[in-house]
Design a protein around this nucleic acid. Structure first.
Lengths: 105, 105
DNA sequence: ATCCTTGTTCGACGTTCGACGAACATCGTA
DNA sequence: TACGATGTTCGTCGAACGTCGAACAAGGAT
């Protein structure tokens, strides 16, 4: 479980990849959880999908540069790369997070 | 050519649909053109796809609520629903447009 | 050493997407 | 009326996506 997790460097973040990562309701929910609760281990998300599917979504978010995944013992801690996103795409994450709650309501 | 073009009302714009519409390079280019040049007829976009494909992309943008398509004689004028997007998702379009040029460079 | 917990990877399946050309519809004009 | 220009729709194709269960890998605890 300790492979070399690939995280794109901040300068190489692609807008279309980030937008695509955020355009799925499950992944958007994960991002919202992270923004509200801070870092989480993979099992802490309340998403209605199988764990293999969750793992896939977390991989998409990580490879798009939206999240950071760090091994921590037998778990993995997932967090938002908020500062990196802000420096590469100023205002984008804030705009998405500001809008997301209205979606849920 | 004068069907009832469906445009979702501002209150019903869905964030995931908007993000998905913007997550394709072709469509992002169209949005960037519209932001820079104002309204365009369908043929005025310099996109490397067949016209049927362009029509499809314009339909995706329209149904997500990103663009407004109005018949004008034998043509159709496409424009950005910038104000609607701003009121529903404040800052989102600006953030995307600010980032887009860096992608192209 | 043996489990148990956590999370990833591997096919498999069905759906959606992006692309194209051909055919069609519409409006303006000759 | 007939033609031409502008877009849309249809049918098709391969690729990518989202989902699942089963099998696997790794670290901690007993």
């Amino acid at each position: 479980m300790s492979e070399h997790l690939h995280h794109p460097p901040t300068e190489e973040l692609e807008l279309t990849a980030v937008l695509h990562a955020l355009s799925d309701p499950i992944r958007l929910g994960i991002v919202r959880d992270l923004a509200g609760n801070g870092a989480c281990n993979c099992g802490a998300f309340s998403v209605p999908v199988a764990k293999s599917t969750l793992s896939h979504h977390l991989k998409v978010l990580r490879e798009a540069g939206v999240t950071l995944t760090e091994p921590a013992g037998t778990q993995r801690v997932v967090s938002l790369r908020a500062a990196d996103l802000e420096s590469r795409f100023p205002g984008l994450l804030d705009a998405v997070l500001a809008a997301a709650p209205a979606e849920a309501a």
